[in-house]
Design a protein around this nucleic acid. Sequence first.
DNA 1: GAAAATATCGAGACAGTCTCAACTTTGCAA
DNA 2: TTGCAAAGTTGAGACTGTCTCGATATTTTC
Lengths: 195, 195
Amino acid sequence: MNADTPPPRRRMRADAHRNYERLLTEAAAAFAEHGADFSLEAIARRAGVANGTLYGHFPTRRALLEALMGDRMQALAATGAELLTARSPFDGLATWARAAMVHTTIYRGLGATLMQAVEDETSELHAACTAVLAAGEELLARARTAGEVRPDVTAPDLYALVNAAAWAGEQTSPPQGERLLTFGLEGFRASAPDR
Amino acid sequence: MNADTPPPRRRMRADAHRNYERLLTEAAAAFAEHGADFSLEAIARRAGVANGTLYGHFPTRRALLEALMGDRMQALAATGAELLTARSPFDGLATWARAAMVHTTIYRGLGATLMQAVEDETSELHAACTAVLAAGEELLARARTAGEVRPDVTAPDLYALVNAAAWAGEQTSPPQGERLLTFGLEGFRASAPDR
DNA sequence: GAAAATATCGAGACAGTCTCAACTTTGCAA
DNA sequence: TTGCAAAGTTGAGACTGTCTCGATATTTTC
């Protein structure tokens, strides 16, 4: 994954590219196993590189997380677009929301970063977040038009719900994210469908 | 607040009690201003005490937070009991949930501690959490009986919702906790009231 | 194949958590 | 009142983590 991505504008030196990839790989493994707060120093060590090298490629933890999440976010947006053709607009929305929650849960503690990225225009992830938000908005719009969700539910509401549910799931021992998400989605529903 | 609370079993030495109170006061101020992650070292300094003294009284950050929250939690439980007489059971529940969210928001980043405390039987706060959960359950039960909430909504669901909404509010720049809480509560509502 | 450009290295400054042996203060009992 | 054991405090220091930067090494380019 993320095989040939030279992130800055000009081409990277061969050794630099190697280290860059190695760092991403190790970071992904470490974050998946220990959460998004795992020591950067330890990641550099695991990647067989001095910590200065890590900071050279990724000035902040967020930059590293963002490099890791970019593709994933785009994929999530794409999934959203596919679900636009779901039989029931509401179900499409709900399915997507669940996928988004799984996505957030990939690294424990990731939610906060994702919430910040959406508001911070300078974030590498901002474009990806915008795409995700747009995907959410399309799903919402369709459900709204079908009279299946309340007219005042916004894409940021959906985004916040997904991340908050993921957060709650991380805090509870039989993870409670699913339940919270379900209730929240029910709350989005227009009160009297038709029957 | 918390004027005369000798927390351990045997009476505390006068100077120890003084320091204990001083630490609580400074910690409350610092956490309120800078969030629950504020440096313990700095709190000790502000309290005019060596950091070893702080650790002597509060072995962990959580212990300090717990000492700070105990009374507050009990008060929240009491508020719940009062709201049992609200005109509409659902409104009583909703009002209480909002109060609980404000309560969680007292220190930025507190939510995680509160979520852990409810599950950890060894926590100082566990009893207080249980009281809060019980208060929530009573409000839920009343609303359930009145047919105003779904039968499958539990007190832990309510607790998780409140804390998750508080968390979300901390992450968003016009705080979105209120909205999320509202949607969640709507999701708790029984589908077809009567009209 | 050597200069220029680009990366890496790792020591060290800094901040935070937490511990512990030496020291000080308090309260009680004679 | 005194004095001493118990209780409490102190602050240096071990440790972990973040982040920077001058010296050094590797690649690329011509």
